[in-house]
Each structure stands twice: as structure tokens, then as C-alpha cells.
Design a protein around this nucleic acid. Structure first.
Lengths: 128, 128
DNA sequence: CCGGATCCGCCTAGATACTG
DNA sequence: CAGTATCTAGGCGGATCCGG
């Protein structure tokens, strides 16, 4: 935090660009299905209907849209094989590995934060 | 990524809890105003109307709600001084420092990703 | 089999006005 | 000054049906 902030205080331009970079990162991971999809495709490449099986509750429309998003962001490759009918396989790209540290940090902080919240809830309850 | 994934494949329970921890982290930072508010309060503690000045375009209702969110998550402390009329100062808590590494990673990855996207856009344009 | 098209309900952000 | 109250709008996710 300190490091980022120190850079930001001098001028507002840079601060905004920092915020925007962070927001971009948050944005591409956001939504109900992005993470489940990435994780299921990390296990193995799959076809459309397979993915729908793996990720419980997602509808074709949303799946289609989410896969398109992931493809545009370079996380997923859509491979079409000219069988009859065509076979479409979705696979994770090596670029997804760049997410490693972000996801790890998010996981660590999220876990820690959950414990913190739970603890503060408990204290509140004790008082009341 | 690899580290997280390796832990996840064995059982689905743990995978889901990982995803949820990450989602929690994403959730508390998400939205249009959370980051701008955190950053402006990092510069200095401020009163309600001051914040509204600092963060361009936010309406009182939204500001009120967002501050409440930030307070519940432990990032912001609401200090009421019994003047007449009351003075309310919002200040950043030390707990916000725990965001340091997450935000830094998000910033790094977001910047990198933006460059990547821009580059791939350029290539597309060259072809067409 | 792999989606696209259409319609719909909900949630939430925002605008505006107002109050203790 | 520090918010609330009320209303509106739009975007997202979901359900359902349709087509190559």
C-alpha cells in the first residue's frame, strides 16, 4: 500500500491510472462464473457441454458469453476441429499462469479477511 | 496458480472454498467507488462533505452506503465528535495496510494486462 | 452439439429532493 | 453538516425457445 500511495500523492494523474489498472484487474476476474470456469478448465480442456456439466448451474447463454470474455482476455483458447458435427474444445492458455500471484494474494487476503470478519462478528455477539 | 491448483484438484470442497476466499477478496474491493474512497482517505482523514468534494461525482446516498461498507470491512473508522452540530471524521484504519500486497499485485497484473490487450488490438488492426 | 435470440425480473447505481 | 427518502434507469443474470 505505502509504495503505491507514495507514488500517487504527487499527482492525481498517476493515482487515477493506478486505480484504473487495479480496476481492470478486478474487472476481468469479476462475475459469478469467471473463476469457476478458469479452475475447471485448468483441470482439463473440455467441450461446451462438458463445461456446463462441470460448472453447476450455468446456462448456455451465460457460458457462451463468459467463454467469449475469457477468450478476449487471453485466458482461454477456443479450438474448432472440423469433424461432423464440429468439435469445439476450450482450453486454458499459458497466459493464464500470469494470474498465479494475483490469485494467490487474493486467496491469502480473502481467507485472512474472512477470519477477521468472523472474529469481529463473534465479539459483537458476546457483547449483546 | 500452480500451487493453488495442486491443492484444489484432490477435492472439490477445498477448491470451492478457495474460489470463495478469492471472491470475498474481489467483492470487498469491487464497485466504482471503493478504491477512490480508500485512496482519498489514505491521503488524510476527512469529513463527509469533504470526501464528496474529493471524490468527484459521488452522491451522498452512495457515499453513505460505501462508507458503511468500508467500515464493516474494517478499512474505515467513523469518528463522531460531540460538537454542535456533530463533527464526523472518517479515517483509514491500520487494517487497511493488509491490502498492500493484494493491491500491489492487482496493480502489476492490471498494468501488464492492459499492455497485452493493447498489443493484441494493434496486431488485429494491422491484419485488417 | 453448440450455441444465438428474445424476453423478463432483480438488483443496485444514480438523480433529486429533503431533514434533524 | 451529515446524511435519508423516493423514484428512476440500466445492466446483468436467468428462463425459454430457436437455428445451423
Amino acid at each position: 500500500m505505502k509504495a503505491i500511495v507514495d507514488e500517487q500523492i504527487p499527482n492525481r494523474e498517476k493515482c487515477l491510472s493506478n486505480v484504473n489498472a487495479i480496476r481492470d484487474a478486478l474487472f476481468v476476474l469479476n462475475g459469478k462464473w469467471k473463476l469457476p470456469l478458469i479452475f475447471t478448465l485448468l483441470e482439463r480442456s473440455q467441450r461446451f457441454n462438458e463445461i456446463q456439466q462441470s460448472v453447476q448451474g450455468i446456462t448456455p447463454k451465460i457460458l457462451s458469453k463468459e467463454l467469449k470474455d475469457l477468450e478476449e482476455n487471453g485466458f482461454v483458447k477456443r479450438c474448432v476441429y472440423p469433424t461432423t458435427p464440429v468439435t469445439v474444445i476450450y482450453e486454458i492458455t499459458p497466459y493464464s499462469d500470469t494470474l498465479k500471484s494475483v490469485l494467490h494474494e487474493l486467496y491469502l487476503w480473502g481467507t485472512q479477511h474472512r477470519d477477521m470478519i468472523r472474529e469481529s462478528m463473534r465479539k459483537k455477539k458476546d457483547v449483546s
